[in-house]
Amino acid sequence: MSFYLHCLSHTPLMGHVDPAPEILAEVHAVIHAARQRIAEFAPELVILFTPDHYNGFFYDLMPSFCIGMAAHTIGDFGTLAGSLSVPQELAESCAAAVLAAGVDSAVSYRMQLDHGAAQPLEMLLGGLREVPVIPVFINSVATPLPSFQRARLLGEAIGSWASGLDKRVLLLGSGGLSHQPPVPELAKVDGLMADRLKGSGRHLPADEREARTQRVILAAQRFVEDPNSLHPLNPEWDQWFLDILSEARMAELDSLGNAELSALAGKSTHEVKTWVAAFAALSSYGAYRTSDRYYRPVREWIAGFGSLSAQPL
């Protein structure tokens, strides 16, 4: 058994609202290099920690965590749509081990995922079904949110389970760093939008899906012109967070409350809990070293964009 980890920001705006060509080329080079390293590792199993953006998980039943026994992506923002190659028996074993470790996680045999899951699989592995993958959803937008501590304990439980496998395991974390795109909040909407957040948005009509896409694109265009139109990015916090991961100090995040994180870096920054879970999983195997760190704030993508690899010492 061996581990390799890569955490990567995702953005639905790539290809829709892009930064200057030299910055885009820089990001593509970072992704290409990570893909090559992963190919050399030749994973036999992927554990993907991913958020959702009211595309697969809704307030009809919103878990803090959910492990997929079978899953598919919807293809929003032009990302790949289709089924993931989920090894059901392994996923069931993982879910049982997590519960036995004292971490409550739901399970789903029909998990629906969006660009947050599709992008890293496409960019880093070449497709949705290239390698068997167990998707692990972490609620990052719908209050009440899980804490950093719970995300860390989830990762540690999954890492302990994976340590017993005779496989090369790739841990992937997918999430933006500081950012707050225009995601609706149940407490601030009513009527049709509230109904969509409560579950009817699971299968949006094509015209509504396109209107939603265009709203995000327009918000990004405005953010480029006026940095005050959305919650500002916080490069200083992003770099501090990357230091925390690099130095295996994840437990220090336990004291950082959800409201404080939202104020510091934006309400969608809770996606970094996917990174924490991935690194916690790796730490359960022992000490590790990070490499190939990359960071750039990209207003066109309404996100602090980061990439970070790690492997056991």
Rank of each mutant, 00 (worst) to 15 (best):
P12M: 02
H53P: 11
Q239F: 00
F77L: 02
V133Y: 03
G127F: 00
G155T: 09
L8N: 03
S83T: 12
S83R: 12
L282Y: 13
L80Q: 15
L233V: 02
A220L: 03
E22K: 01
M62G: 06
V98N: 11
P312S: 02
Q214N: 15
H6P: 01
D207K: 06
I47L: 15
T11P: 11
R110I: 05
E22N: 03
D166P: 10
N234M: 08
I217E: 07
R299M: 07
L242D: 04
N228M: 08
A117R: 06
A277V: 00
F3N: 00
V183I: 15
M123L: 15
S291Q: 11
H10L: 14
W301L: 11
A280F: 10
L204W: 07
A70R: 09
V276A: 10
E208A: 12
A33P: 05
L125F: 15
S178C: 02
W301T: 13
V298F: 06
H72Q: 13
T143C: 01
M14W: 05
I38L: 00
G286T: 00
V136N: 07
S105Y: 05
L5S: 04
K167E: 10
G266E: 07
L125H: 14
G15M: 09
R293S: 11
V131F: 00
A151R: 10
W275T: 07
S174D: 07
R215Q: 15
L218T: 14
D207C: 02
A20T: 14
S85Q: 14
G201C: 13
A220S: 15
N258K: 08
C94Y: 07
G82F: 13
H270K: 03
L145Q: 10
H53G: 04
F65D: 06
L121D: 03
G176R: 04
Q112V: 15
Q221R: 15
I23E: 09
S309Q: 14
S262Q: 11
H53F: 03
S160A: 14
